[in-house]
């Protein structure tokens, strides 16, 4: 199963490092990363494979969300199907 992690907020040092470290800790493989900075706002999108994850996906999503709050960022981890169903016919 694949999931999409989005990080939105003010740019700062170490965002990518912290999120990818969290993925590695739970044996979640990062497949693709895109990021852009628009007027100081940082937007990163990560496609990850969660089939080897050592914790349930909902728990992982909550961990990331908490981590985001600590850094003042909005981090969401969502099943990729939601995006596929909304944007692909």
């Amino acid at each position: 199963m694949r999931a999409v992690i989005t990080v939105i907020g003010k740019d700062m040092v170490g965002i990518l490092a912290r999120v990818s470290t969290r993925c590695a800790e739970h044996r979640i493989n990062v497949l693709e990363v895109t990021q852009s900075i628009l007027q100081d706002m940082f937007a990163m999108i990560m496609m990850v494979d969660i089939s080897g994850s050592d914790i349930p996906f909902t728990q992982f999503a909550e961990e990331l969300s908490r981590e985001g709050q600590e850094m003042g960022l909005s981090i969401h981890a969502m099943h990729e199907d939601i995006f596929n169903s909304m944007h692909k016919i």
Binding site: T6, I8, S36, I45, H76, F83, H87
Partner: peptide, 16 residues
Amino acid sequence: MLNAHDILETITMIQE
């Protein structure tokens, strides 16, 4: 591959 615009659009719809 999903494009970034579509993903951010969905997030905005839900969050805002």
